[in-house]
């Protein structure tokens, strides 16, 4: 085979066995084909690199990778405004994954948030090629979990301060457990539950040690597929067009795939013996009130004066 003119790296947030990664790898394959082998992009799962997920944008800026996925959720310590569309129970009503995706998409496009995102991207010399979502975050447990009162005294693994204070409000104990130890911790009852999406429960085989899922569609975590502007500019125009076109297509494929896969995963989990309970509309509103009064204020404090305006804009966007 002839050596490629452009050998690039793509750092993804998920292992190659995951459907997201498969779609990306297929897209990279199409790029290689359409470019006549001139552009060859290698997909690497970020955990196989020396880097952490939160560093992926910095890697773009430093020229250490040409394309990467980036999760705003991983950067909210540094950019608190970007947490707004992903605050727990940000949507006014419980909704399906598909509807939620559209609504939260609009929230990301609300003026202040969109401007903050543009600034972050510009600072890193990055361009967004795709925006898509993981399956909605929900509660999972090895104990019964069917109503709000069941959360009392459950030890649940959390990964953000917002989830932590939410759990405390519910009378549970938030726990801090490294990702690799979650399975064993569930198995030995160091923790009772986790907050995550249906796809991750299946992918990490946590369903082997979980018995209940409580579906309230707490929040939608988003990802961006990001390319280095500098790297892109080095390509001749025809190749630029191929890369942008194919990767944009991958982003759209993933966006369309997530809601379907969420339903399929929930069905699968139910079939494998996990009791799935849909939160009632009333319970959702209870959760939302709790989040609004007890969880959001800490975020507002970090953001400062703009916080209320941002929330107003997001409310409007979601309601459309």
């Amino acid at each position: 085979a002839q050596a490629a003119d452009y050998r690039w790296q793509f750092f993804g947030m998920l292992p190659t066995t995951h459907e997201f990664s498969k779609k990306i790898v297929a897209g990279l394959e199409r790029i290689k084909e359409r470019s006549g082998g001139r552009v060859e992009i290698q997909y690497s799962y970020i955990a196989e690199t020396p880097y952490k997920p939160a560093e992926s944008l910095t890697l773009i800026r430093d020229g250490l990778v040409q394309i990467t996925e980036w999760l705003p959720a991983n950067g909210v310590g540094t950019y608190p405004i970007l947490a707004a569309p992903e605050l727990p129970f940000v949507a006014a009503h419980k909704d399906t994954a598909a509807n939620l995706q559209v609504a939260v998409g609009r929230a990301w496009d609300s003026p202040i948030v969109a401007e903050a995102m543009d600034t972050v991207m510009a600072d890193h010399g990055a361009r967004v090629l795709g925006r898509y979502f993981y399956q909605p975050m929900n509660f999972w447990s090895s104990k019964p979990l069917a109503k709000v009162a069941d959360f009392k005294d459950q030890r649940v693994r959390v990964i953000t301060p917002e989830q932590g204070s939410l759990l405390e409000q519910l009378g549970g104990t938030p726990m801090n457990i490294p990702n690799t130890e979650v399975y064993t911790s569930l198995q030995t009852n160091v923790i009772d539950g986790v907050i995550t999406g249906s796809g991750n429960v299946k992918g990490s085989k946590w369903n082997e040690v979980l018995t209940a899922g409580y579906i309230a569609n707490i929040t939608l975590i988003s990802a961006r597929m990001v390319i280095s502007k500098e790297a892109l500019a080095e390509l001749p125009d025809d190749l630029q067009a191929i890369v942008v076109e194919e990767l944009t297509k991958v982003g759209e494929e993933i966006l369309a795939w997530t809601p379907e896969s969420d339903q399929a995963a929930l069905d699968d989990l139910a079939a494998s013996g996990v009791t799935i309970t849909q939160a009632s509309d009333e319970d959702y509103l209870k959760f939302r009130e709790m989040a609004k009064t007890k969880v959001w204020p800490a975020w507002k404090e970090r953001v400062g004066a703009q916080a209320d305006t941002i929330l107003l804009q997001i409310d409007e966007a979601l309601a459309k």
Binding site: P50, Y51, E55, L64, P178, T180, E181
Partner: peptide
Amino acid sequence: PNYLRGVGHSIWNGATSEV
């Protein structure tokens, strides 16, 4: 030589492994 910039990340992430 551009890859040398990754060395700092590599050391730091190794040193602060929770496990």
